Simulated scan of single mutants.
Amino acid sequence: MQDDHMAAGLVGLLLVAVAILVPLAGAVAAALAIRRRGRAARLAMAGCLVMLPGPIMSAVGTAVRLEPLMRTVGTSMAAHVLTAMTLPFHLVGFGLLLAGALAGPARPPLPQSPTPAEPH
Rank of each mutant, 00 (worst) to 15 (best):
M6S: 11
E118G: 13
L43M: 10
H90P: 01
P105K: 11
A99H: 02
P88T: 04
A25E: 04
A44S: 13
P119S: 10
L21E: 12
C48P: 00
L13Q: 08
T83Y: 02
M57L: 12
V16L: 11
M85R: 12
V22I: 05
L15H: 09
L14T: 09
V73R: 06
M70C: 06
P68A: 03
A99L: 08
A30W: 00
R107K: 11
A25S: 09
G104Y: 00
A19Q: 05
T83K: 05
G100S: 06
G95Y: 05
L49I: 03
A19I: 00
I34A: 04
M6E: 15
M57S: 06
A46F: 01
R37D: 15
G74M: 10
A25W: 02
V92Y: 04
L24M: 06
Q112F: 08
G38H: 05
A99S: 02
P111G: 04
P114D: 14
L14P: 01
A44T: 11
L96C: 04
P108E: 14
G104Q: 05
V18S: 07
L110N: 13
V28G: 07
A30P: 01
T75Y: 13
G61N: 04
A30H: 01
T115V: 15
R39E: 07
M57K: 09
V28W: 12
A17E: 02
G54M: 03
C48I: 02
T72P: 11
A41W: 07
R107N: 04
V28F: 09
L87T: 15
H80D: 11
A79D: 07
A59S: 10
T83S: 11
G61V: 03
R36D: 12
L69K: 08
G47A: 08
V60Y: 06
P111C: 05
G9F: 12
V50Y: 01
L82N: 10
G12M: 08
V22P: 05
P53K: 04
S113L: 15
L98S: 10
P111V: 07
V16D: 11
L32M: 12
A103R: 12
V22M: 10
Q112P: 09
V73N: 08
R37C: 07
P109N: 03
L82D: 03
A78L: 09
I20A: 04
I56M: 13
V60Q: 06
H5F: 14
G61S: 00
L87E: 09
V18P: 09
L97Y: 07
P119W: 06
F94R: 12
A59T: 10
I34W: 01
M6Y: 13
L49V: 08
H80I: 07
V11N: 01
D4I: 15
V18C: 09
T86Y: 03
M85D: 06
V60L: 13
V22D: 00
R35S: 14
G54H: 00
